[in-house]
């Protein structure tokens, strides 16, 4: 992978647990792809899904800070004008036309944030607005929920937010899905899941148990 130097345009908090890093970077990419980030002098890069739609001459990275992590504590110290090294884009967690169910946990919402323009352009087909289930521990950390709620109101997306902790916690995604009947699952040609390994494993088990053919399930693990 070839790393190029890129300038930090902004760095701020996103919700309670998230951070948003905007980088000056204008290579073409497909929604759902990742970049690798590393700091000059630290040769061990990490991968991040691009969290904004293409065509903006900048990319947004959504991340959570892991106290004992190698890169994220350092990312959080970056200031506008600082230099970071970026490689990519890469990966193939790409949207497909047809009826889609998307499920995101935590920062796993990033690839779906980059699909915003596809949703607005009805790229998926006339009668197949995607359904998005977004989950996180706290309501403040439902990154981009205002964008998805707006798309929902405009009948471009069916959006269901889930929160597992705090006063607004409700049923978990797993409980909600388990309560759906078979026709719900049958309606989707493709189910895309993005998040932690345990989420991928639990949801895949649940979906297979509900009769969904594994050929319809695509996942991206933030390993």
């Amino acid at each position: 992978m070839i790393f190029v130097r890129s300038q930090v345009l902004s760095s701020d908090r996103w919700g309670l647990a998230g951070w948003r890093l905007v980088l000056d970077w204008s290579l073409p990419y497909v929604p759902g792809q990742w970049v690798q980030l590393r700091l000059p002098g630290l040769d061990d890069p990490r991968m991040y899904s691009i969290a904004n739609p293409p065509g903006q001459r900048a990319i947004t990275i959504l991340y959570t800070l892991l106290a004992e992590g190698r890169l994220t504590p350092r990312l959080s110290l970056l200031k506008p004008g600082d230099i970071i090294e970026v490689a990519g884009p890469g990966g193939a967690f790409e949207a497909e036309k047809g009826s889609n169910l998307w499920i995101a946990g935590g920062t796993g919402i990033a690839p779906f944030l980059s699909m915003q323009k596809l949703i607005e352009s009805k790229w998926y087909g006339p009668n197949s607005r995607p359904t998005l289930l977004q989950s996180n521990k706290l309501e403040d950390d439902l990154y981009g929920s205002e964008i998805f709620s707006d798309l929902n109101e405009r009948n471009l997306l069916k959006y269901y937010p889930f929160v597992t902790q705090g006063t607004n916690s409700g049923p978990r995604i797993t409980e909600w899905l388990d309560a759906q009947d078979r026709s719900f699952f049958k309606a989707f040609e493709r189910i895309m899941i993005c998040g932690s390994t345990s989420m991928i494993l639990d949801l895949r088990d649940l979906l297979l148990g509900r009769g969904v053919d594994f050929h319809r399930i695509v996942s991206e693990v933030y390993f």
Partner: peptide, 19 residues
């Protein structure tokens, strides 16, 4: 086949076999 490998092995979405 990339799309089938993705279903069997999520790593295919991250590091496609062609790479």
């Amino acid at each position: 086949f990339a799309e089938e490998r993705k279903r069997l092995m999520p790593v295919q979405s991250v590091y496609p076999f062609e790479s």
